[in-house]
Nucleic acid binder design. Structure first.
Lengths: 210, 210, 210, 210
DNA sequence: TATGAATGAGACTTCATTCAT
DNA sequence: GATGAATGAAGTCTCATTCAT
């Protein structure tokens, strides 16, 4: 079990402010991401992370209070990136598209995100068992983004509806797209089309007029 | 990284033939399941598993060549159970039901399975990174069951269609139902309804006449 | 700061019951005693203790939950030994001796104890800062032994008197004898005589008739 | 084991000459004293000392070649202070007092010293194992002060007598008074009276006419 | 001169697995 | 066959000290 030691860094662990540090911290996170994907969180060692990031182990521990903090930082990085990627879907131009096109673009967007963030799932799976609060925080942010979008698509949604639909999109469609990313190219393409259909048919049942 | 040592047990490790052994092996697996769910695979120790199953550690190693084998056995047990639970959905009585009812029953079936097998996900998540071959094997069996059902629902499906649809059902709907199982009772009920809608709308687009 | 982790061993750490184990545990304690004296508690490493006791590090940790437990075990061993050595001074033969002779024997007894237990002081100095409860427990036992003796020497002592006198004997005379043990032989002999005088004159002021 | 690196500072480490430096050095020593008492020498970190003294770590290392030097400086500071405090007991007014009063004052003096120097013991205990030469040097100075006083009390003492008596006073009475300082107020008062009695009876046996 | 980020040896501890009894 | 004590490689993390800025 992963023990989280410092939700609020007490000051001993530096936030990277200088350029050089920032580069190193990101290199460590990149390496950690790769290793967590390849071997899983538990099997990846801090020594290995430091070595592959070409950083002394002591330096790693200047930026991360413990191994769990690396995972947490990764989670934060992913959540921020995902939220950011989703913002385009809240723009008027996007929202004006026919639902078919909107869903198509959206599905592609999720797919791209998973492609550029191969560690997303590995990270949150681990976070889910080990640091439920962090997991919840990330989920909440994501949920809010989905709910905002849903309200813009149909202002009549109740909050309960939004919550349920957002949950479905995140857990069902999200997981499908992510699973697709591990499949051979051709099958993957087909699966992305299925994801579109799945979303579209589901949303249509809530947005009959669209 | 989990090192798989014995895909084919070389003979040193006994298959439980006697009644007593069979009970013990199952107790070990039950304990392992619980611990893997609570703490994750990596954090659970073989000593702990043996102790809680009230079995000497040496005995554990007579039935499982290594820790990974416990995970593998668990995976096999789950896959068998799931396949078995799915057989009822291949019976004529079931297949004669209106699609709405069929999907409802099916969703409930998946939900029950996850409820009685809380370790299913923890197991396969771990298997997925650590023992892809085993994971693939399980997925294949599951896929076949889904494909058989789909063909019975509509004999005109191509193999590609079957494969895609089965994948969607497993990864999207399956994950949704599983995720729902961790939610508060009321929201969970709502989510199960959503899962039905999701499946139904999706399948209808493939089975327009049903 | 030394963190004590297990006041009550939860069962994971074995009490040595078998002959072989008992020998090993004592060898570890002997080695630890020597190293703590030479280098101090903090500077001695568990690896070093294990190596010099010719025991694998893993075995050391089967008997002691952590480094602090070695110190604690040492403290317990010393306290038991000291209490045992003091029992002879509660026997009628001893108590019948003239005070001069009694004090002489007693001083020699303390001196012998420190000679055969060179780590006594190093241990309790460390214990004192790091594990005050354990220290207190040891002190209490010792105090009780002194108080019993004092009451036998003079039944009229109040409890307050006993406590004060016992404290003086332990902290003043005890420390003197221990300090003497580090001095050159001749000076040491002289210091033991001084310790006798110190005790004798002090006790006489409380036992005028003796 | 504490490694002493610089008995004679080779020139790289500054003696604090300027007012500001002097203040800082003393602040560092004060902080170090407090931390050594609280946590022990080994557990206190140089970073912590620097931080609590509000001095950059680099600056700390400009005044102290290594961690051990802080301990050494503390020892020196204590020895100087103690010697200074003892000088009053060499003045004619003091020496003219009846022995009872002299001993009373002296005991109180030692007690005050320990009260204002709570780190004295922690320091010398550490020094004793780690830097015997430094310990010896301090002891020698203290011994000389005691011997001077003893000679003034009785010019007929041989050097051997002086040495023995001084040792007794330092190790027995000194330790008693220090131990008393950790006890509850009432008991402590009693113990100080005992310390007086102990000293007085002992010294009287050497100064019968006084 | 003053600073504090960077370094890496090494400390403590765990745990899967074996094999003598 | 059954048992569980024994093993030691390897993991996480600390901290005294340096030196580039």
């Amino acid at each position: 079990m992963i023990e989280k030691s410092s939700v609020a860094m007490p000051g001993r662990w530096r936030k990277p402010k200088q350029a050089r540090s920032w580069v190193r911290v990101n290199r460590m996170l990149d390496v950690a991401e790769a290793l967590f994907v390849e071997q899983g969180y538990a099997a990846a060692t801090t020594k290995q992370i430091a070595a592959e990031a070409d950083v002394p182990i002591g330096t790693l521990y200047q930026f991360f209070p413990d191994k769990a903090a690396i995972l947490e930082a990764l989670a934060e990085r992913y959540t921020n990136l995902l939220i950011e990627r989703m913002q385009v879907f809240e723009t008027p131009e996007m929202l004006e598209l026919p639902l078919e096109d909107y869903v198509k673009r959206f599905t592609e967007g999720i797919d791209s995100f998973f492609t550029e963030s191969p560690g997303y799932r590995a990270t949150f799976i681990e976070i889910n068992t080990a640091m439920p609060e962090v997991d919840q925080a990330g989920d909440d942010l994501l949920m809010q983004a989905y709910k905002r979008i849903l309200l813009k698509l149909n202002g009549a949604f109740t909050d309960d509806d939004c919550e349920a639909i957002a949950f479905v999109m995140i857990k069902a469609v999200g997981n499908l797209v992510w699973s697709a990313s591990g499949q051979p190219p051709e099958f993957r393409q087909r699966l992305l089309l299925e994801a579109e259909q799945l979303s579209l048919n589901y949303l249509k049942s809530y947005l009959p007029e669209a």
